[in-house]
Amino acid sequence: MNLYDLQAKSISGHDISLSEYRGKVILIVNTASKCGFTPQYRELEDFYQKYREQGFVVLGFPCNQFMAQEPGDDMEIQAFCKTNYGVTFQMFSKIDVRGERAHPIYKYLTEKAPGVMGSKAVKWNFTKFLIDRNGDVIKRFAPSTKMSEVEHSIKELL
């Protein structure tokens, strides 16, 4: 199995196969609307706008597993992202990113790119996974990683 074999439901309710992103550099992020890292939406959207013509995409996966910081339903989340941060990159339906009910995409990502000391669990909102054009998970970024470092890694793959 590889990343392109997986799919998820978009925030607007239709299934999207990750094979649609074959050949692109992908940044997958678990998001939340009421988190200290929520302003990263703006930088993620800026990266998307700046590099999308070069084959870069951001995929956002809302999650409410960390101190209930994503309490809204999909429509509320979508409205929040567009209104407050002008998000145009692909957002998906709210999912779990850790534990028994973790979405298969996150089970795959955490297996391929463990965190500190080999931990597979996603520890907080806005953990990022960078995928190359071949669908290989290249790097995992902690939520607190400077966005300039994330951008540098994106540029290396483009």
Rank of each mutant, 00 (worst) to 15 (best):
I77V: 07
F66A: 00
T83L: 13
S12V: 13
E111K: 04
Y4W: 03
Y41A: 00
S144D: 08
V97E: 01
Q54H: 11
D15E: 09
S119E: 13
H152L: 13
Q90L: 02
K34L: 03
D136E: 15
T110C: 15
K107G: 06
Y4D: 08
V116C: 15
I16M: 07
F66V: 00
F89Q: 01
L109I: 11
Y41K: 04
K34D: 05
F141P: 06
V58R: 00
E151Y: 08
Q40R: 01
A32W: 04
L27Y: 13
V122W: 03
Y41C: 03
E76A: 12
G55E: 12
I11A: 01
D74E: 13
G23W: 11
R98Q: 01
E151T: 10
L6G: 09
V58P: 01
K9Q: 08
G72D: 13
V25P: 05
S93Q: 04
Q40F: 09
I131K: 04
V137R: 09
N134G: 11
L157P: 09
D15H: 08
L157F: 03
M67R: 11
T127Q: 15
I105D: 14
N125G: 05
C81E: 01
L3S: 06
D46F: 10
S17H: 05
R22W: 03
F61S: 02
I26T: 03
A113T: 14
G72M: 03
S33T: 03
D132H: 10
G23A: 06
K107F: 10
L6F: 11
Q69I: 03
L109D: 15
K9A: 02
F129P: 08
I154Q: 09
G118C: 13
K82T: 02
R140F: 05
A121C: 11
P71N: 04
P104W: 12
D96F: 07
E100K: 01
G135I: 06
M91F: 04
I105R: 05
V58Q: 00
K123S: 11
E156K: 10
F66H: 05
R42N: 07
G13Q: 10
S93K: 00
A121I: 14
K82C: 12
H14E: 11
G72V: 02
T145E: 12
V87I: 03
E76Q: 15
R133G: 11
S33I: 05
Y85K: 02
S17P: 03
H152A: 02
D74H: 07
P114A: 13
E100C: 06
A121S: 14
T38L: 01
P143D: 13
N2F: 04
D74W: 03
V97C: 02
I154F: 06
Y4P: 12
A68S: 15
Y106Q: 01
E43K: 02
E156R: 06
T127D: 15
E100R: 02
D15G: 07
T83P: 10
V58L: 04
A32R: 05
S19K: 11
I95H: 07
G86R: 10
H152F: 12
N84L: 13
S144E: 08
P71E: 12
D46I: 02
L44I: 01
N64G: 01
L3H: 14
N30R: 00
I131F: 08
R98Y: 06
Q40T: 01
K94Q: 09
M1C: 13
Q65G: 11
F92P: 03
F80P: 07
